[in-house]
Design a protein around this nucleic acid. Structure first.
Lengths: 117, 117
DNA sequence: ATATAATATTGCAATATTACGATATTTATT
DNA sequence: AATAAATATCGTAATATTGCAATATTATAT
């Protein structure tokens, strides 16, 4: 059994709530256009695809692999061995967490039109 | 008139769509628990507050100022001079963009329960 | 067993991020 | 004009990120 310690660099994660840290990890993982593009691609093909992403994006294979790793670490995608290849797909749970968060924000700000600035 | 050139480091932004880049910028700005906490605080107080954030979070004033700048650059918050102080508030437009994106994803994945991994 | 295909890891250079002390700027008050 | 209060900027150390070539790993097929 091995423990993975998630750090955010110099970030003082211990001062924030679990939800705040979790949302930040998810957002950080999406904070790169290549990773958004990977998500978009996974949505488009509607079924698990792996090495096609390398053909789809203008990045070298090691770079794609790295981005996939980050998405997987953040729990945004899942990967499973499929014979020779690895099959990746979207993890709805993580995306639902994000959706709920922004939905909540939308609800809260619905009736207030920039009431201060 | 001044032009601001938004870069993402070594990131090859020119290969992605405008929406992908925009979402990545927004996500990146939210990719730190302090900035999620700032957003949460702005939602809670429901009205524009500024220096209170320094008292609310366990970070030094220059650090808060830096985080606010990043949120403002990403268009997630707005700031306006209010006498002595600067009043910050949430920019619903940017958050709605995020909400719409994750809503779209939820719709697309609604009926599919991890159908591959 | 070897070769091939798919993916991951390593190593590295260039750049970005985080955090904060020191200092500057801006506005209000006296 | 001088002071105080609020915020921003500068400079800097420690660390993380991005991208890729080279290489390693893993699994299938011959």
């Amino acid at each position: 059994m091995q423990y993975y310690i998630f750090t955010m660099g110099a970030t003082k994660t211990e001062h924030y709530t679990d939800l705040q840290n979790k949302l930040a990890v998810l957002a950080k993982a999406l904070g790169h256009p290549a990773r958004i593009a990977i998500l978009d691609y996974l949505l488009k093909v509607e079924t698990c695809i792996c090495g096609d992403i390398v053909n789809e994006l203008p990045l070298a294979q090691p770079t794609i692999s790295q981005h996939l790793k980050e998405l997987k670490n953040a729990n945004l995608i899942k990967g499973s061995v499929e014979g020779n290849a690895i099959c990746y797909c979207i993890n709805e749970d993580a995306l639902n967490l994000l959706q709920n968060y922004f939905m909540m924000i939308s609800e809260k700000t619905k009736n207030k039109k920039s009431n201060c600035c």
